[in-house]
Nucleic acid binder design. Structure first.
Lengths: 346, 346
DNA sequence: CTGTTAGCGCGTTCAT
DNA sequence: ATGAACGCGCTAACAG
């Protein structure tokens, strides 16, 4: 029996191929393809035509290696499926795209070990810079310090940690927490529960501080048992709701540091038949696109993800272009806005 | 005035640096770093120690160029912020990560022109393979045919188009549309509206076919004016709701081909004070994480995004490892499941 | 076991 | 205006 094995070697055409086909030198082809003024218009046209004919496509990896530049920037987020982060990414892509950069996105899944590995991979890939929002587990910073010593420019957004000389683009979390809590107070709530996250992250400390400050302003005494710390996943919210319901007095408001936990709480309330009166409200920080829309009792603190992404990228590009070392880090703070859905059902 | 300009040239250490420091050859260093058995354990240890000391980090770009391999696969999705796609991406990352591949994610934003540009960029970056879900505008396939001729393996997921010899991982959209519609019929609905998308995409044609088939099974006459085509954005849903309300008879059910439009419709209904009775239900295809949870009148067709991502990646890797050309494309179909939230409020 | 040489695909000298 | 030669960082062939 005859075996007919066809092996197709897909040799992509190189500048040498097109040089050989035209009996000229590869360097001329290179110059033509880079639109150098040092090659005649006539041969330039001929080369371009030939390149097109042979389906030539520049190997940017080889090109970048030779020029020792890199036009991709790395992005590390805890979880791509969180709407806030995906809108940040959209902003990053937009700004990076405009500046001629590619973006490679990685998710730490809130795990320090994964974050470490990702940083390593990005450095091995010689990315031009990194934008990151640290994981909830990130309490040691060796990998980040390593990246800094390495000379790779990077910048925090949303979640940062105190590393000397690293800029960040943040949200005014204190104000957000304050607004959310005051919103509830003005609705008549007096016993306001609060879901907070890992205290290692400044965003959660600040949101809680805003909560406390609003209570103080309105002369409502602070009750520690109303503040629950967790990883703010959906089941954390459910459990938190159960805890709040088990208190000897009635909790009439809830400020959750993110909306995932807030939704978990609402699920629990519905399941248990707890009716949420219009006066009681739940405020979720972080903007899933649909959360507040369906049920008016859920108000959200809208975080400008897209703008943060754009701004962070622009700042990173700026820092990348700097030849001197900047010792002073810049912290940019954006405001979030409280979005109350029109409670049309009343 | 004296100008003191400090220029830091961040020369990353190379294998030559560490070779020079040890007075040995770079190739030995390379071998040691690749854990080749052809290097004595003693020198291997010494080299590793020195590499560590100098903070060496392999330049994978150069390495890949030499080996003429590439360990990144490209992913093109219409919009990363759609929860379905971000869960697919999670599945892809998981599977790719396990196989030692990096993933570069791009969004077409439903624009053909962007999709074209992205394909070009990915090819220029010599990605090992591509996973893609085409944009709503993709009615011409020159860029995809080009990629095929180029020899780059690729595979469709969720949204495909009929290109010879390209595999796809799909969802059983006909069944999903059928299930959704029958669900409404069994709830007592008779005049069921349907939001559909661009008919160029098979997923929308199939969902509509399922809708019609369910009507036929239950001997309900098909009314063309109940089927509205659009881009299925939120405002399309709002407008669709308005159109349905303007009909001379009462629409008592709605099957939307995605949940974004379904949510738009719900917003409109609430704003107009239209009460959605328990018997009337809205079914949204595509699984935003929170949609159905908050309001029991929204039932969702759950699409197994993560599994699709994993499966698609495995298939792509398999096809990449093939030396012979497979003419027959494989179409894998996954089932979606209708998830009805327990309407605890009744 | 280790060194020498060559080249992946490209861009940039330096010549002519 | 074009060609020859070299090197980006690394690996693979062939020596010894």
């Amino acid at each position: 029996m005859q075996v007919n094995l066809l092996i197709i070697v897909e040799n992509k055409t190189t500048i040498h191929d097109i040089a050989r086909a035209m009996k000229i030198d590869a360097s001329t082809v290179s110059r033509a393809l880079n639109n150098s003024p040092r090659v005649s218009l006539k041969t330039k046209d001929r080369i371009l035509a030939k390149a097109n004919e042979l389906g030539y496509q520049r190997n940017v990896l080889a090109s970048n290696l030779r020029k020792s530049v890199n036009n991709t920037i790395g992005v590390i987020v805890p979880r791509i499926s969180r709407h806030f982060f995906s809108s940040v990414i959209s902003g990053i892509e937009e700004a990076a795209y405009d500046a001629g950069y590619n973006v490679i996105i990685c998710q730490s899944l809130e795990q320090l070990e994964r974050e470490r590995k990702i940083v390593e991979t990005l450095l091995a890939n010689r990315v031009a810079g990194v934008l990151l929002s640290v994981s909830m587990e990130t309490v040691k910073f060796d990998h980040l310090l390593n990246m800094k010593n390495n000379g790779t420019p990077f910048l925090f957004f949303d979640r940062h940690c105190g590393i000397e000389g690293v800029s960040s683009v943040l949200i005014d979390d204190f104000q957000g927490g304050f607004d959310a809590t005051e919103h509830l107070i003005l609705k008549g709530c007096r016993n306001i529960g609060h879901f907070s996250g890992p205290q290692a992250l400044a965003i959660y400390r600040n949101r809680t501080a805003g909560y406390i400050s609003a209570l103080e302003k309105h002369k409502i005494s602070y009750r520690p048992e109303l503040v629950l710390h967790s990883g703010l996943m959906e089941n954390d919210g459910e459990e938190g709701a159960r805890t709040l319901l088990s208190l000897p007095y009635t909790v009439d408001g809830l400020f959750s540091a993110n909306d995932v936990a807030a939704i978990g709480a609402m699920k629990y309330f519905k399941r248990e038949g707890v009716i949420i009166p219009d006066e009681m409200a739940i405020v979720g920080f972080s903007n899933e696109p649909v959360s507040g829309i369906i049920d008016p009792s859920l108000t959200t603190i809208d975080q400008p993800g897209f703008e943060i992404g754009q701004l962070a990228t622009r700042l990173l590009l700026e820092e990348m272009s700097r030849t001197t070392i900047t010792v002073k880090a810049k912290t940019t703070i954006l405001k979030s806005s409280l979005i109350e859905r029109d409670s049309s059902r009343r």
